[in-house]
Design a protein around this nucleic acid. Sequence first.
DNA 1: TCAACATTTCAAGGATTGTTGAAATATGGA
DNA 2: TCCATATTTCAACAATCCTTGAAATGTTGA
Lengths: 117, 117
Amino acid sequence: MDEGQALASFGALSQETRLQIVRMLVVAGPDGMAAGAIAEKLDVSPSNVSFHLKELDRAGLIGQQRESRSIVYTANFHVLGGLVRFLMEDCCAGHPEVCASATQVAACCAPAARNVP
Amino acid sequence: MDEGQALASFGALSQETRLQIVRMLVVAGPDGMAAGAIAEKLDVSPSNVSFHLKELDRAGLIGQQRESRSIVYTANFHVLGGLVRFLMEDCCAGHPEVCASATQVAACCAPAARNVP
DNA sequence: TCAACATTTCAAGGATTGTTGAAATATGGA
DNA sequence: TCCATATTTCAACAATCCTTGAAATGTTGA
């Protein structure tokens, strides 16, 4: 991820509704959620949620796919991971102590990274 | 870091000049940089850089300290690390593969996290 | 104290972003 | 085909953010 993409990602995540959408889609996983379901759960108008979904899509943070009448959105884990990486590389430059806590988080959800069976 | 703080951090980092300031300060380390030096290196007017520094300060991403005539700014590694952690916890929810790449980055700059002497 | 330096504050203006509701588009079933 | 559902698009307006340059603040040394 280059600086321009990071900038776009930060901009996309800097709005409350959009951050909530991303968090919901991350929890939803690969199945994703339909635009209407997102709007209902967040109590936001369909047109407003559509506006924010387009914004997140432009930043590459989510993807979309028509499924019958609905349009189902999913989090783009690859880009999300790239953003973590960008932030870590930037804040790690000579500052290992920052990464240490990140490593702890990683260890707790990525068993493959540790020797825990 | 709570959602509100993350929102503020993302907003602060979503502006080119501010992102560049943070990256410079991270590289500068604990010594930090004076406002004037930042302005000169980024070729931005003093008043403009001051505006952005205030914004970054409000988000807690940087700290400041008067040093004689200059005001020296430093990156807040604690908050930066908290942001990485926030992003990781969000995007790790059930998705270990994202954290795996982050772990690699961490390993390369945090020797303590691995068994490399 | 005065002058020079380093930085911030302020007001004004322009640019971008977010919200709203109405109308348009696309899909599936009766 | 017609209707209901799901979503997007559009225009208008409001709100926020960024930039600029001039003036104010704080600091140091002569």
